[in-house]
Simulated scan of single mutants.
Amino acid sequence: MNSNQTVEKLRQMRLSAMAELHHQHIGSNRFADFTADEYIALLADHEWEDRQNKKMARLIKKAAFKQKASVADIDYSHSRNLDKNMFTRLAGLGFVDKKENIIITGPSGVGKSYLVQALGNQACLMGYRTVYSSTSRLLSKLKLSKADGTYLRELRKLQNTDLLILDDFGLQAFDATAREIVLDIIDDRFTEKSTLVSSQLPVSTWYDIIGEGTIADAILDRLVNSSHRIDLKGESLRKGILKNE
């Protein structure tokens, strides 16, 4: 069997990265640089790294973040009550393995959305299935799914997500349908998956925002009691950006 046939068979077996590297080595005649074991390990490592990179790219695309955010780029210099040691520990994603939640609250412009997306991006890089959405947009989508009969299917998708990020929670008071949807989501994920919530409103006001005492109690009991809390302070970071423009 000649080398070109080997390359073609690797491609047919969907070992494309391995095939490409082997093809390059055929052209440069680098076989003598390795023992047989070393060469096989080199090809296998290259294929594995390529698949991992593609997996991370798929997870990030599917998460549907609205901006590129990275844990490495977080600015801790602003006085906004963000503890670097605590956030670095959370970025290790032990909370996802423990099925715990995170709640980040604070006024508009202090960087809540960036922080939750940075954690979401980190989750994707570590192989966790992640979904990001503004709360209002997700509720609108699920209300439509109730009408077209796909509601249970959409709930299962969320239930199978390792990390669900609900941004801008509570900007609008919930109607009866929204309350039921949020309870379904949170109840499915309770002790099974992690949920990350950001809100301009303090948690103490969520009871009234959700409305209907029994449902509000059920949602908050499942969401808040198993959560890490970050309460950001300070002025909007956007003010400094506008001053410098």
Rank of each mutant, 00 (worst) to 15 (best):
F34S: 09
M86W: 10
L171N: 04
S133K: 06
L196F: 13
R58S: 15
L152Q: 15
D83G: 01
E20Y: 15
R30A: 15
E20P: 02
G213A: 15
L183F: 11
E245N: 14
D221W: 03
K193Q: 13
L125Y: 15
R129A: 14
A17H: 14
N53I: 11
A118S: 13
M18R: 03
M126V: 02
N121P: 00
T161Q: 05
T150I: 01
I185T: 08
R14A: 12
H228Y: 14
Q12V: 14
S28Y: 01
F65S: 00
E8K: 15
L232K: 10
R58E: 02
Y128C: 08
V203H: 00
F174R: 00
L115F: 05
K146Y: 04
S198T: 05
L158K: 13
D184T: 08
A91S: 14
L201D: 06
Q172L: 08
T135I: 12
D33V: 04
E47P: 04
L42N: 04
A32G: 12
L115T: 03
Y207H: 11
L125W: 10
F169L: 13
Q200C: 02
I181H: 00
R129C: 09
S3K: 14
T205R: 15
K54F: 11
D217I: 06
T105Y: 01
A17P: 05
V182F: 15
V116L: 11
A147V: 14
D97V: 10
D188H: 09
E212T: 07
N85A: 08
S134Q: 13
G111F: 09
N225C: 13
L152W: 07
T161W: 00
T130F: 01
A218E: 03
P107Y: 07
E192C: 06
P202C: 04
L93C: 05
L242G: 05
K61P: 03
S194W: 08
T105L: 02
L59I: 02
D175Q: 13
D50N: 12
W48P: 00
M126Y: 00
H23G: 11
R30P: 05
L144P: 00
Q159C: 06
V110W: 05
S16F: 13
K243L: 10
A218G: 12
S3L: 12
D73T: 10
H25L: 04
S16K: 14
R222L: 01
L115G: 02
A173N: 09
V110T: 12
G234C: 00
G106P: 03
D221A: 11
N121L: 01
T191M: 12
E154Q: 15
K68Q: 10
I215G: 05
A178M: 09
R238M: 06
N4S: 09
R238F: 03
S227I: 06
L232H: 11
A123E: 07
Q117I: 07
F190A: 02
A44N: 10
